[in-house]
Computed example of a mutant assay.
Amino acid sequence: MRVLSAWHQYAFVIRQLTARELKRKYARSSLGILWSILNPLLSMAVLSLIFLNMFRRSIENYPIYYLTGYLVWQTFTLATTSAMTALPDNKPLLLKVRFPMDIFLLARVYTAGVNLVYSLIAYAVMLIVFGISFKWTMLLAPVYLFLLFCFSLGMSYLLAVACVFFGDVRHLYTVLLTLWMYCSALFYPVSQLSEFMQTVVRMNPIYAYISSLRGAVLDGTLPSGLVWLQMLCFGILTLLLGRTVFKFYRKKIVEFL
């Protein structure tokens, strides 16, 4: 009973921290949380205007093709970049209140999940607008997104530890994300790349989630066995690794802060 009571309290704290993060994010915005809906739509509109003619023949329903990849990428980057600085940002609260440090990371990853839910509202509307019919493979989308969140949380653990001891990690990660984005095939077809680059992209963890979700929504197809293995390994193993590293450095993190 004590364990259940403690986790109930922790869940409450996570919800409160998430609400705080959302309020802080949209504090000076007139539209507030609506930007979670407008951002993917505006990005889709801009990229579609730029690349639609270029990829019209090779990609059917290009706006949805891009929007699907963008939502996965946005969720991952929002989760990891915000969670990376969660411990230094909450230093006063972390040192005064006896809560598990994980809560601060979980709250920021959870915030990215809430942001995704709002974005999916816009996504559902766009599917209707572009006449994308329902396919039973869409029912597996929550599985892909769950594994994405496992991978994001695992990366968040690793980045949070690194950021405490090496502050420059946040700047290096920003540069890495730029390269990572271009290797994730957000706005171009992988088939137009050289064989070597196709291999590089297909080894990219984020592309496994993007391609699986695109296949489910646009083509009604399932991932291959290799892609399933990639998603499971990247998601579960990264989470276990991140959690293990975080536990190992827990005391040192408190001492360093």
Rank of each mutant, 00 (worst) to 15 (best):
L186G: 04
G69E: 01
T77N: 07
F51I: 09
S133W: 14
A11P: 05
Y123T: 03
T137P: 00
I64R: 01
G167M: 11
M138G: 01
V125S: 01
F196S: 10
L193A: 00
S133I: 11
V3R: 11
N39T: 09
T81Q: 05
S156V: 05
L120Q: 02
P189G: 05
W136Y: 11
T85Y: 08
V13Q: 04
L31F: 11
Y144P: 05
R28C: 13
V217Y: 04
K135S: 12
L257V: 02
F12H: 15
S212F: 00
I253R: 08
L87T: 07
Q9W: 06
L87C: 07
R98D: 10
L240M: 08
F99C: 04
R57P: 08
A45L: 08
A160L: 08
G32N: 13
T221W: 15
K96V: 14
A27Q: 08
F256E: 04
V164N: 10
T68Y: 02
W136M: 03
Y66F: 10
I64Q: 06
L148W: 08
T178S: 13
Q9R: 13
Y249F: 15
A185K: 10
M1E: 07
L148Q: 07
G154S: 02
L47M: 14
C150H: 07
L94I: 09
G235P: 03
R24H: 13
S5C: 12
A185G: 04
A27N: 08
S211E: 10
Q230S: 09
M101I: 00
F165M: 04
P100A: 06
F234Q: 06
I64S: 00
L71P: 11
Q230L: 03
M155V: 01
S191C: 10
L78P: 10
H171K: 07
Y173F: 14
L4R: 15
W228Q: 00
A79T: 02
R20K: 15
K135C: 12
M155Y: 12
S30P: 06
L87Y: 15
C150W: 08
A160V: 02
T77L: 05
R98N: 12
G225F: 12
L105C: 09
T221Y: 14
G225K: 09
M203N: 15
M126L: 13
Y10K: 10
